Amino acid sequence: MALVGAVAGLSAAPAFAEDGDLVVFDWSGYEEPAFHPRYVEKHGDSPTFTFFGDEDEAFEKLRSGFKADLGHPCSQSVVKWRDAGLLQPLDTSRIEGWNDLLPGIMAMKDLATTADGTAWFMPWDWGNTSLTYNTEKIAAEDVTSLKAFADPKFKDRVSLPINVDDAFALAALVIGLKDWTQMTDEQFAEAAAFLREVHKNVRLYWTDSTEIVQALGGGEVDLAWAWNDASTQLAAEGQPIASNKDTAEGITTWVCGYVLLKDAPGSIDKAYDFLSAVNADPEVAKYIVNDWGYGHANAKSMAAVDPAVLAAKGYEDVEKFVDKTLFQSPVPPELKLRMIDEFEKIKAGY
């Protein structure tokens, strides 16, 4: 989820330092001021950003004592972070536009709020991981199914994300699942077997969007399981890269957002100013849809986006759109650990 500034791994040193009263632990690329102009207008500069490239590594970093004020995990990690005691509840009365968040996203089980009504997560950006390909090198009829990733004719031409969630979401779709939270042992084995077949074709496992954009744009790979911004950015540059969201098996949808980290050392007031700035500003929604190809979780902000742009991105009917995908909902901890262990073996060639 990054257009610029690839930072692999987890350095404790801020990669983009401005306002020292607020430290945001984020994906590389989200430090762009266009994501929080109202914060800059009010405080004179951006927060300090420090980056992570993988949520599981970020989890370990925070658990080992790394301090920041806000974090930017995605749906499949929120419960894990919360249950590990890494988060503190949100005071939603201090977040402008909280009541305008999309009902379909807020309805994701145990995500934004718990049964007692306590809020832990503010959904903010959402998008898809979908089949993305070079239209000059691959015919559209050859990529109507996600099974194409395992087709031997694409040997050394494929790239998958390095993160386990996107990988197993791909495999879950291929074996016919739309809800991966109840994956059986047999289904797990089937999904892992598919990923092992795909591994035979993989040229690289990409860490962030800068890497996959460069790989697709430079011709290093022709077929990728990639986030919206890869095809959005490359198409804007006039390159023959497109995504197919209408494969036989469908797409996966992830929802990311912001959390208030426990024992946040900075300014709580500025933390809430930041949350309000990214949530309730229609200009932010326009930017995230136009320039990144993602959706914004605030219905009121999304309504300000040009209808023609929403239609082009497939977001003119958000409720219908999210209904046809595999949501990367939180999975049981034991299943997640199994996925992590298995995917590490697969990437290592075992």
Rank of each mutant, 00 (worst) to 15 (best):
W124H: 09
G127F: 01
T129F: 13
T129R: 10
K137R: 14
S159R: 12
R157I: 06
A150I: 09
V158W: 10
V158L: 14
D125W: 05
T144C: 02
G117Y: 11
S130H: 03
E141Q: 15
V158G: 06
L111W: 05
D116K: 00
L101T: 13
I105Q: 08
G104L: 01
G104C: 06
E141W: 11
A107L: 06
S145W: 05
W120I: 09
N134K: 06
T135Y: 08
P161D: 05
Y133I: 03
L111T: 00
L160I: 11
Y133V: 02
G97S: 13
E136M: 11
D110R: 09
G97W: 09
I105W: 07
F121N: 09
D125E: 08
W120N: 08
A140W: 10
A148R: 13
K137Q: 13
K147Y: 00
N128R: 15
P152A: 13
A107S: 15
W126L: 12
G104R: 05
D142L: 04
L101V: 15
D151M: 07
S159I: 04
I95W: 02
L146K: 13
D125P: 06
L102P: 02
I138Y: 00
I105Y: 08
A112K: 07
M108A: 14
F121V: 05
L111Y: 05
A119W: 03
W120S: 06
K153G: 04
L111H: 01
M106L: 11
Y133Q: 03
A139H: 12
D151K: 09
A140Y: 12
T114D: 12
R94Q: 03
G127T: 03
T118P: 02
V143W: 06
D125T: 13
L111V: 01
A119L: 01
D125V: 12
E136V: 04
K109L: 03
L111G: 00
A148H: 12
M106H: 10
V143T: 10
V143R: 10
I105T: 10
L111Q: 01
A112E: 02
A140L: 11
F121L: 09
D151P: 04
D100K: 10
N134W: 04
T144V: 13
S130W: 00
L146T: 08
T129E: 08
F154Q: 11
K155I: 03
D125R: 09
M122E: 04
P161V: 07
M108Y: 14
K137E: 12
V158Y: 11
S145D: 05
D125S: 09
A140P: 08
D100L: 06
T129D: 08
G97R: 06
G97F: 07
S159N: 04
S159F: 07
T144Q: 15
R94P: 00
P152C: 14
G127L: 04
T135S: 15
V158C: 11
T114W: 04
T113A: 11
A119M: 03
K155C: 03
K155E: 10
S130F: 00
S145G: 04
L131W: 08
E136L: 12
